[in-house]
Design a binder for these strands. Structure first.
Lengths: 199, 199
DNA sequence: GTCTATAGATAGATAGAC
DNA sequence: GTCTATCTATCTATAGAC
């Protein structure tokens, strides 16, 4: 879990335990009893802090998507105005977030379908804002003739796919550091959009 | 479901219904009763054809991975010996398979963790064979100095990620045909590995 | 907030008549 | 192979004493 967003006490322990179990066994494969046992609270204490098991999942997924959007915004703000640098900054932040908070990213994307449509709707808004950030950068790069990319929408799908899947295969000790993966995938993103060399 | 692999009669209907439900609700979110109702058989008929719900999932996942491997092998055999053509053929087959059998691909990858390790092991072997095909092509391209690719393992991760994720977002009527996606992603793959122009 | 007890529904799986 | 009936376990969620 990203630092600072986790409530203290039983509520925070429940979220942490639920995240780990949802990532391992899936939402449907995890019981409220499992979560409470892992959080070391009584089997019914979850209902003191959340109305239902689904609300626990919703909170985790919301935290996941908001954390990603926050990091993408931060990266874009700190980048030089050159679309190439902006794309590199976005991809690096995207990949790092997925490697460093792999379980959160997995649950946030794989279990979104388990939420009711009403619960998922505001989360989809956050997710759409993140896509918008990247689309604006790519379109500006094309307009400035710095990118040679006939299918920008598919290019974005491809680039975000690389980062999303990293949450599944990346593990500390897999032979790469998150920074190496982020740097390499940022280079791949530049190749995909057909970025001109800087010099 | 790919043609020709589906048994006739109740067993085939059960597999078809289970695939749709696993894709929509997840393995843990689907009950045996749901499957039988959707397959229009009695609630206990599933146990005539399968020892357990997990065996239904295992069969679906096995079919999914074997179908993908079959298509990749076929594509590679039909390709010119130039690593660039081979990579294009593999990526096209990979993307087409994931677009045309999206539910199968989603279930085969997302629910693999729901299988016991003993059941998953032979399926992982099939999956490893598919990776091997692609790795051999990329390494040969590097050896022949047709590819400029300092991180071949990460390049393969990136390329397979594009195709895998396509199963999630692609839908008939999304504005692209499977062929368009396949052609575009094959081009992205060439860009990622830094393929030299042919002329 | 934490405990025991338990409601009410549903899960996977089985038995046996036909 | 199909049906009815059902076993046993487990699920989410609630009630109420402390």
């Amino acid at each position: 879990m990203p630092p600072g967003v986790l409530p203290k006490g039983a509520r925070g322990r429940i979220l942490t335990a639920a995240l780990r179990l949802f990532a391992d066994l899936g939402y449907g494969g995890t019981s409220v009893r499992d979560i409470c046992a892992s959080a070391e609270v009584q089997a019914t204490t979850l209902y003191v802090h959340f109305p239902s098991k689904e609300d626990v999942l919703a909170e985790i997924i919301r935290l996941g998507h908001e954390e990603l959007l926050r990091r993408l915004r931060e990266a874009l703000l700190a980048a030089q105005p050159d679309p190439r640098e902006q794309l590199v900054a976005l991809v690096r932040a995207h990949v790092l977030s997925h490697c460093e908070h792999a379980m959160l990213a997995v649950v946030a994307s794989a279990e979104l379908h388990a939420l009711s449509e009403a619960t998922a709707a505001p989360i989809r808004v956050v997710s759409a804002q993140a896509e918008r950030l990247a689309l604006d950068v790519v379109e500006r790069g094309i307009t400035l003739q710095l990118f040679n990319c006939p299918e920008p929408a598919l290019a974005l799908r491809a680039i975000s796919s690389m980062g999303q899947r990293a949450a599944y295969w990346f593990a500390p000790g897999c032979g790469k550091t998150p920074q190496q993966v982020a740097d390499t995938f940022a280079d791949f993103a530049l190749r995909i959009v057909g970025a001109q060399n800087k010099n």
